[in-house]
Simulated scan of single mutants.
Amino acid sequence: MPKRTNSVDTTFFSLELLRRIPGNQRITAHELHQQLLDAGIERNVRTIQRQLERLSQHFDLECDDRSRPYGWRWRVGSRGLSLAQLSPAESLLMQMAQAQLKHLLPAHLMASFSPFFSQAGHTLSHSGQAQREREWSQKVRVVAASQPLLPPVIQEGVFDAVSEALYHNRWLNIDYSNAHGTRRQAEVMPLGLAQQGSRLYLVCRFKGYDNERSLALNRITSAVCSTFHFSRPADFNLKRYDDDGRFGFGEGRSIRIYFTLETARAQLLLESPLSADQQVSELEDGRLHFSATVIDSPMLDGFLATFGSTISNIKRETNNVSTEQENNDE
């Protein structure tokens, strides 16, 4: 039985090595070692080197030993590991996942998948059976719900350090400038990462505090993942943090909002309600009166403002205390 287990492990290890060797560039044993570690496969560099030498006797692998560190690649004209080739459908899925998840997966995991992303791109570009899949990327698109903005520049190494600390539950040392340009250095506990439009936010707790803050990654000028671990707070939940309107700059205060909307602009809220308990009634003049339970926040204010002069009689109710907002009724 131990012999069989070792044989299976060696076969699996060999397949993982072969799948990670690129066809158009060289990769070193140290780079393969890091990719395997990121994928949860622990082998030392010397073991990887020995296995590559063995595999080169049976597969079209070549070692570029002109300079150190030596690099491995498939020989020119080789089809690579044909039994592990992605189908056109799998390649399409991988390509779309790469585009949508590049900032939502830890950097080291994205790096470990890079050979598969490369293989997917090659399959879609060169396979005669992938015409429909190639066309699909031109037929679908994620569109902006508001004015599109170019993503802000994130300093090199910041995302890698943030995602590593978040993945391993380690303290993060940052140099950060707020919106007013005030700069500070701090040690933070990373709790979540959120993408809002073109911007990325780190949800964290500053050391010595038990409340959460959202920091824009583009305002972090440097970040270093420490070697010290922390226990993730049991009372924190990223979904609840979002549901409480924190990314809309709210404080989690739930209110009942009431307003009147001209019929021509009401279709949006009839199709996509503000909340599950939204209620709508028609007034004598044909306008529609809405009420819904929502989180009070500047984002809500901005949304209501998009209706311009077609919205009126805006009223907020919290704990049986109502506040009326100036409206556009004449």
Rank of each mutant, 00 (worst) to 15 (best):
Q51N: 11
P69N: 08
A216H: 03
L191H: 02
R183N: 09
L288S: 07
L149E: 10
Y70Q: 06
R20L: 05
F230R: 12
P106T: 09
D65K: 13
Q100M: 13
S146E: 09
S312K: 10
Q57A: 12
S297Y: 07
A111K: 07
R287P: 04
Q196M: 05
V294Y: 02
H229Y: 15
Q267A: 12
M110C: 07
F113T: 03
F236Y: 14
C225S: 15
G121M: 03
V321K: 12
G40Y: 02
A29Y: 00
A145S: 09
A292D: 00
A266F: 04
T123P: 03
L105A: 10
E212K: 06
E251L: 14
K3M: 12
L283C: 02
L274T: 07
E133S: 06
Y70D: 04
A186Y: 09
D65A: 15
P151H: 05
F59Y: 15
M110K: 00
I314S: 02
N178D: 14
Y167L: 07
V45Q: 11
D301C: 13
R246T: 02
P152V: 05
F259P: 01
E324D: 10
R183S: 10
F236P: 08
V142I: 15
D244W: 06
N169P: 00
H108G: 00
C225T: 14
S177F: 05
R79L: 13
T323N: 08
Q85K: 08
S146N: 03
G157I: 09
E251G: 14
L172S: 05
L217Q: 06
I27Y: 01
Q325A: 09
K239N: 14
Q100G: 09
L105S: 05
Q51I: 08
T10D: 13
P115F: 01
E262L: 06
F303G: 08
